[in-house]
Write a protein that binds this DNA or RNA. Structure first.
Lengths: 236, 236
DNA sequence: CTATTTTAGTTGTCAGACAGGTTGTCAAGG
DNA sequence: CCTTGACAACCTGTCTGACAACTAAAATAG
């Protein structure tokens, strides 16, 4: 049953042969956007491979977003673009930093609201723990990682993987490039620490009390204050 | 008023359950970079799934570059991380569709609010034009592109390129995969058209009025209604 | 101690089967 | 005419069991 291996073919796994075949089929343009591609059984027959190999190839194409499979119906070409969301590129200017900051604000305020609706007691305990760790580290130096971890702990409570991933990536990204704005400034580090403690505390309290609106505005205030701190140091 | 529960739903495919399990295992940090993950047989036993499902999950992780497998040896974590925000990959289940929908809601409501603060008269004219085009096309058939264009017109007014790009990508993505939910509705297409017309009208009016809060809640209502329409099979 | 062989464990692939969902057909009834 | 409902054919998702190809570590022979 197995295909006579013209030994040069054996450099690719069976699954990869199938992958290349389908990919070429797609990119040759023989299929319109959204069209159905041959069924797994059909490919199996055409390629002389087992369904497992064919399915492995399709799984890869699915993960790459080129193909979409619907049970009972078939596998279809994805219409339009290959689609990434947005790339986290290097930040080179203050306006760009602000753009990301707005992006973050949009996600985090909604996240806080959702967290207030869905957080378990364990979630809230984790937030408090993260906050405590952050303050402890902040007492002896910078603590970007811990700050990101705190925001991530909130995102976890939403039970939404996409939001969680985005928050984690964004928090890291914005924090990492914060040096584009002049951070060191008007405020003593002790002062900053105290403000962060208060603001984070308000966020967690609002979530603990299951108050979505309060959580949303607490986050909003926190991030807007952070932005103001960032900018007015650069401004004056 | 209770939100649709996204967390405990058993509607994840088996392969996706496995995917999420392994992904969480990876990201929990219990594994060093380059370390070996549990064998397929082990995962099979832990999750109570068949090897086929486990392999499908691993295939996806391989395609995403998080894992690489060596025959005879095992599957290993890849070292180093891609610095993307979040990838718009295949949507395979209703809960996943809802996750993206929530993501979109977070961005779009903030976008509407910013648009209300910043939109020029030209921006608003463009929104109205996009809306008109959408309704015209909707009269003769589906008009996903035009719908996405409308939402993008709003995003443009924020003068934030990151938000604009993300909105465009997300609107396309969610719309494109909408078939995962139950699209066929209790509602006639004429009814749907009218509702969309009204809801979109409210959004533009709020922005034209320069009323951020009203714009935010109009978008919120629009998207939540859209989601309800999408999921409608379970509803009422 | 070194070199070789054995052995247990792991991924890749094959085969067949069934479950659960979709789509087009077609006849009955308005 | 066309709508409606049942139905059959088809498709993907998943399970089961098996074997082949390969690796790495243990066991063994020198």
């Amino acid at each position: 049953m197995k295909p006579v291996s013209t030994a040069s073919n054996e450099r690719f796994s069976r699954a990869e042969q199938a992958y290349r075949y389908v990919l070429e089929f797609i990119e040759s343009g023989r299929l319109a956007a959204g069209a159905r591609l041959p069924s797994e059984a059909e490919l199996e027959a055409r390629l002389g491979l087992s369904r497992a190999s064919v399915r492995e190839a399709l799984a890869r194409l699915r993960a790459e977003g080129r193909v979409n499979s619907r049970r009972g119906a078939g596998s279809f070409l994805t219409q339009g673009r290959p689609a990434e969301l947005v790339r986290l590129s290097t930040i080179t200017s203050v306006p760009e930093l602000i753009e990301w900051h707005e992006f973050r604000l949009a996600l985090e305020s909604e996240v806080a609201s959702l967290a207030a609706e869905r957080a378990t007691d364990e979630d809230i305990a984790r937030m408090r723990a993260a906050q405590e760790l952050l303050m402890k580290r902040l007492a002896v130096g910078p603590a970007s990682r811990e700050d990101a971890a705190f925001h991530r702990a909130i995102a976890t409570a939403t039970r939404n993987r996409k939001l969680e991933d985005a928050i984690a990536a964004l928090a890291n990204h914005v924090i990492e490039w914060a040096h584009v704005g002049q951070v060191k400034g008007v405020m003593s580090s002790a002062e900053r620490r105290e403000i962060i403690d208060i603001e984070h505390g308000e966020i967690v309290d609002a979530i603990a009390e299951r108050n979505p609106e309060r959580a949303r505005s607490a986050v909003r205030r926190h991030l807007l204050n952070g932005r103001a701190r960032l900018l007015n140091a650069a401004g004056s």
